[in-house]
């Protein structure tokens, strides 16, 4: 069972990726506090959903070119362990984990930080180099694969902002018209990204697809996914509890703005 140097390099890269992507959240006060006061069932659900998302990401990017689904599952679990380790070490050095804290508080803080860290660790390969793209076995994603990547991109960016007070505060400050404008701007930006990526480098698609089809199948559906992901992120962090429907929609649109950027650029990011 001699460790394979390529595997160790992959672990190191995953650790670096976890740190790079999770540092903004590791240094955010709300994330520490949510670790102990958020609903434990929602935290459990979030962690449970992270596993299939990581498996999907491994399919399209990930630590190494994988042959079978079970290798993707192995990668996802390795990445979660690396992310948990990175979160524990960093939080301990920051003094966020200290004696006198209960198991619930410590585990909650680590689990919450493990989620974005594992995303970063999984993306480390495509982000931090590794083999040149040309050498890699990479499937051109199917339509459903593209939608999955959009959802993952949205989740990744919205996760950065959903825990903060500012999302709800911005929603309070915006009038209904400003909310509608933000939704239209998000949708327009998303379409611009999708359109630009479609013709530049992205997966080869026939040129004769009409623009309206592209808009309906990618931008519109993509934005619906973004809003769903935003709503889910807000709900997981308890940001929707006790709010009126109008405020919940408004906050989803606010969070959907970064989410739309993340979704549309997912193919660049992931």
């Amino acid at each position: 069972m001699r460790p394979d140097p390529a595997f160790l390099r992959g672990l190191g890269r995953a650790f670096a990726g976890a740190l790079i992507f999770a540092l903004p959240m590791l240094m955010t006060m709300e994330m520490w506090q949510l670790g102990f006061y958020m609903d434990p069932l929602r935290l459990a659900l979030l962690l449970a959903l992270t596993v299939p998302t990581l498996v999907g990401l491994s399919r399209f990017g990930g630590l190494r070119p994988t042959a079978r689904l079970r290798d993707d599952v192995a990668d996802a679990l390795v990445v979660l362990l690396v992310a948990a380790l990175a979160a524990t070490v960093t939080l301990y050095i920051f003094g966020i984990l200290a004696p006198g804290m209960s198991g619930r508080e410590i585990i909650g803080k680590i689990v919450l930080q493990t989620v974005p860290g594992s995303f970063g660790a999984m993306l480390a390969r495509s982000q931090l180099g590794g083999e040149p793209e040309g050498e890699r076995e990479k499937d051109p994603p199917t339509y459903w694969g593209e939608l999955f990547l959009m959802g993952a991109g949205a989740l990744f960016l919205s996760f950065n902002m959903a825990p903060t007070e500012e999302m709800v505060l911005i929603a309070y400050k915006m009038s209904a018209w400003q909310s509608v404008s933000l939704a239209l701007v998000s949708l327009g930006l998303m379409h611009a990204f999708v359109y630009a990526l479609n013709f530049k480098g992205g997966s080869a698609r026939p040129d004769h697809i009409p623009a309206w089809s592209l808009f309906a199948r990618f931008s519109l559906v993509g934005y619906a996914i973004v809003l769903g992901v935003s709503l889910f992120s807000l709900w997981v962090f308890g940001r929707t509890d006790g709010d009126s429907l109008k405020e919940i929609i408004s906050a989803s649109i606010v969070l959907g703005f970064p989410g739309a950027i993340g979704a549309a650029s997912a193919r660049l990011l992931l």
């Binding site: 394979d4 679990l77 362990l81």
Partner: peptide, 12 residues
Amino acid sequence: LESTSPLEWVIA
């Protein structure tokens, strides 16, 4: 395509 080594399975 790389398959998963025993060490990686242990860590997984």
